Amino acid sequence: MTRSSRWRVALTRLVLLLATVPTIGPTSSCAPSCSRAGLTPEESKAVAVLTGRFETVVFTSGRLATETLQPGALGAVDSVRLAAYVGRFWLDELRPDAGRSLAELSRSLLVGAKDFRAPSGPPPSLGGVRSTKCFVFTLRPGARYDLDARLASAARVPGMPDGRTGKARQQEGEPEPVSWFAAPAGTAYVVLANDLDELRAVVRMLSTSGPPGAANLLDAPLLAGQSAWAHRRYRIARAADPGAAGTKDLSPSAIALVVVPDVKSNTVRVRLHGAPGDTAFVAKLNTGSFLPAFREVEPGVWESVAVRGASRDTDAEMLLSVLYLLGFGVFL
C-alpha cells in the first residue's frame, strides 16, 4: 500500500471510529470561522464543571458543532470538531434523528474526556483510544429537548426518572458495545456520558443555582470569543498508559495543551505550556510529531501552527498528531 493510500484508509477509519453523522446545517447564523461575543452564563458554567472533572475539554459552537466532515478533506484544523461527534452518534444509533435534532436545538456542545486507555480486543488491538467521556449540549434560549419523546424506546436510568440509557454499535477497539446514559440538567442542558457516576455528578452540578465557579483554563484571553477550542490540563503522573494518553513524549513539567482552530485561514494553533527552560521534552516531541516544530513564543509556552493544504498525506498526519496529543489517538 502506498503512503497516500495508507493515510486515506487511516482517515476513513478515523471518521468511522469517531462516528460520522448526517449533515444537518448550522445551529446559528455564525459562520464556521466567525468569532463570538463570548460564552453565555450557561456555557461558562458547563466549562467550569467539565474542566474541574476532566483532563481534556472540547468546546464547539455554531456550524463547527454540526457540519459533517469528509475523510478526503480532513486536516488538523478539524481535530476539535471531530472529537465532538461521538455524542450525537450515540443518540442517532437509537433513533436516526435523535442526535441531529438535539444539535439543532443547541447553541454549543462541550466534551470532557479522561482516563485514557488503549484499544481492547484481539491482537493487534487496533482502534481508537478509549476514555471516560461526557457531552454537554447547551440548549438555545427557549429550546426544549424531550428525552421521553425522542428516546421512548430507551431504558430508564435507575434513580433518574428523566434519564435514559442505551448501547452504541460496537466500534473497533471496544471490547463490547458502549453503554451511554443521558439526562437533562435543568432546562438549559442535556448531558450524555459513558459512565453513570459521571452523568449523575455533572447533572447535579449543572442543576445547582448560583454563579459558575472559575474554569481552570490557560490562554483564557486567546479562547475568549472563539467558536471552537480544546484545552487539556495534563495529569501525567496519573496516566496509567502514557502511550494511549498521548503523554509518552512529555516530561512531568508539561502543564497544559491548548488547541485553537481557525477554519477561515485553515490553520490550527497548538500551544504547549510547561516549565520555562525545560526544552528537552519539546525537542523529543518535535522529533516524534508530524506537526510543524514547536517553538517557544514566551517563557514556558511553545507553539506549533499547522496549515491545511500542503498535501492530503501531510494534512492527515497533522490531524492524527493533534488528536493524539488531546487524548483521542488512534492505533492503526
Rank of each mutant, 00 (worst) to 15 (best):
R6Y: 15
W7G: 03
R8D: 14
R13A: 14
L17R: 00
A19L: 02
T23M: 13
G25K: 10
P26Q: 06
C30K: 10
R36M: 12
A37F: 13
E43Q: 14
S44P: 08
T51V: 12
T56F: 14
F59R: 02
T60A: 15
A65H: 00
P71R: 00
P71F: 01
A73G: 10
V80R: 02
Y85D: 13
G99Y: 01
S108G: 14
L109I: 15
V111M: 09
V111D: 06
R117Y: 09
P119N: 05
G121V: 11
G127V: 04
T132N: 08
V136Q: 01
V136I: 08
F137K: 00
R140V: 07
R140F: 05
S153G: 03
A154H: 03
V157K: 05
P158A: 04
P161H: 04
D162M: 05
G163T: 04
Q171A: 15
F181D: 03
A182S: 14
A185H: 06
A185G: 13
T187C: 02
L192V: 10
L196Q: 14
L199N: 07
R200Q: 09
L206R: 01
P212S: 05
G213P: 03
A214N: 09
D219A: 15
A220W: 13
H231P: 08
Y234G: 00
P242E: 01
L250W: 00
I255C: 04
I255L: 12
A256N: 03
V259T: 11
D262N: 15
V263N: 05
V268L: 02
V268T: 06
R269N: 15
V270M: 12
L272E: 05
H273D: 04
P276Q: 07
P276E: 12
P276N: 08
D278S: 04
D278A: 10
A280P: 00
A280Q: 09
L285F: 04
S289I: 06
F290W: 11
V297C: 12
P299C: 10
V301I: 11
W302E: 01
V305A: 11
G309T: 11
D315I: 13
A316K: 13
M318I: 03
S321M: 02
L326N: 02
F328E: 06
